[in-house]
Design a protein around this nucleic acid. Structure first.
Lengths: 331, 331
DNA sequence: CTGTTAGCGCGTTCAG
DNA sequence: CTGAACGCGCTAACAG
């Protein structure tokens, strides 16, 4: 293993000089920089991340806290996009990402979680999919002992940022598009919402209420709890008496669409998320595509900014409307 | 942050003694162990993993090398199962898992990859989804500079183990079951195989050849390259003239089944993997359920064994036959 | 059985 | 602008 000392010797300078070159310190002569850089290249030197973070106490280590739902693979796709986006960007920024799953935090106190994170040299957190019921996580961000970036949860303070698409606008957009495309007797729309008391659920519901006012249609709302089965049941019950079904997630949209097919009736259905599974519903459907990969990358950037001393803030990511069907998604 | 020194002071012993207690060294009196343990509890001390691995040079850090296919979410489910299984087990063993994606290794030489891994203090690797074309990875394991555990790739030597289900037997099992369940005039079976020159593909094909000999049926083989679309095309062409379609993956089974539905004919189809998506094919299908979560956990155990100095070996995991359909998989 | 001491590889003062 | 010296938190000999 080649160390910083080898590089120093090779370049004929002191170790500290090499360190400064690596970390882009000011006040180093062009000539020294060149010599050191050459030595680094020749020796294929890569700084030891372990030693580096021990010494600097400022480990570019961040924990990516995920809630992989083992129930449905639809969530796997989203979680995986978060992972790849975050891991890739982290490497570009020469930071280290530590995946942590909700299940590993269960039955732990906030203090325990904090000491664990500290013992791992973690300075920042990215939390995906936190709900209002996740008590320890809630307290974790409230205590502000870590720099944290929340994904899809609109909370920000001095050391907390969040990144998310504009849920409210996006929900209205996709529903509007779907309704306008089907200018029939579309007076009654059924909205299958997410979880009561959930962050995104409430925003999306607001979007629907906005739209109902804008387009003046009858809106009936039922909570599908992000469950495909639940959405199916709701559609079996209320699908027939409505003209259009708007769902707060793709999974529920699939459940709704399949229920309609079982009933042998057709109504337009739209979803939210833009997952591949949407192609397996049997019919074309509109949905909101969230770019989870980019969202996670942005979250990494943001946590880096926070660690760099900047204030927390809100980062709104763009979304796009798409229409998915089987032949488009298979490869 | 409470350090080992604080604990030592609190317990009235030397730091090294605390270290020995933590790492379960022999020759420590019951009494000191008790005192140290108490101090640790009272101070809620958790050893700093960074410092520990810097000092011991023997970081329990392992890289989990994955190939997340951004094309289809079916693969996301599998990749995610690998992740959760490995990460969870790693934490139990107090090891650290570093997720690495194939994309991050592209355009890097073996040497570069090795120095990168070394700089990260990585001692062991778990590689999932390596193919015969992944040149750098191939060389990486051949050089034996790391302890590596291969998933689904039957290579083992002094410092390399592999863990996998018995692909050959499993393929024969699921096909046999499917054929025997449909004791009609099932003389002709179409096998849609995986990638030519692939590790598991070859094993699974062998399983089919075994079975063709055993049950004496006509077997025609076409390569679907693990592509849903390809399987669809093959089925559109040859589906009608065969009685049963056996596929080397669930994804292809879905493609085949949907093709049959488009043709408006029915033949039994079976797949391989046991992914949730299988429920969206439209009909019930047999498949082999591989427990990816446990496989990954086993891989972590195995890499720990290798690091502990044991020889490489083959670990065969159990598989089970299941029949999946929509109502079973939705939640 | 326990304590002392010297590093692990690097970042960071602070003189020069 | 450079380099010597110290320390991050811990483990590993070696003394005692």
């Amino acid at each position: 293993m080649t160390t910083i000392r080898d590089v120093a010797k090779r370049a004929g300078v002191a170790v500290s000089t090499v360190s400064k070159v690596i970390n882009h310190y000011p006040n180093i002569s062009e000539d020294t920089i060149r010599r050191v850089t050459e030595a680094i290249d020749e020796l294929q030197f890569v700084p030891n991340a372990i030693a580096s973070s021990l010494s600097s106490k400022q480990s570019g280590r961040i924990a990516l806290i995920l809630n992989p739902n083992t129930q449905t693979q639809a969530i796997d796709e989203i979680t995986m996009r978060y992972m790849t986006g975050a891991v890739t960007r982290a490497r570009e920024l020469r930071m280290e990402l530590l995946p942590v799953f909700f299940s590993m935090l269960e039955e732990k106190s906030v203090e325990e979680v904090e000491t664990f994170l500290h013992s791992q040299g973690v300075g920042g957190l990215i939390i995906c999919g936190m709900s209002k019921d996740d008590y320890v996580l809630q307290r974790l961000v409230a205590r502000e002992h870590f720099k944290v970036v929340l994904v899809d949860v609109p909370i920000s303070n001095a050391s907390t940022s969040y990144v998310s698409v504009d849920q409210r606008a996006a929900q209205a957009d996709v529903a509007r598009k779907t309704i306008l495309e089907n200018q029939g007797p579309s007076k009654d729309v059924l909205y299958i919402s997410g979880k009561q008391n959930g962050y995104v659920s409430e925003d999306r519901l607001q979007g629907m209420l906005d739209l109902a006012r804008e387009l003046e249609f009858n809106l009936s709302v039922h909570s599908g709890e992000f469950s495909e089965k639940k959405a199916r049941e709701i559609t079996l019950k209320y699908g027939e008496v409505n003209d259009i079904i708007v769902c707060a997630s793709d999974l529920m949209a699939i459940g709704a669409m399949r229920a309609l097919m079982d009933l042998d009736i057709f109504h337009p259905v739209c979803g939210f998320d833009g997952i591949t599974l949407m192609g397996y519903a049997g019919k074309q459907m509109n949905t909101v595509r969230q770019n989870f990969h980019d969202i996670a990358a942005e979250a990494v950037d943001e946590v880096a900014r926070l660690i760099g001393g900047e204030q927390g803030r809100a980062v709104i990511m763009p979304h796009e409307l798409v229409r998915l069907e089987y032949m488009d998604i298979i490869v």
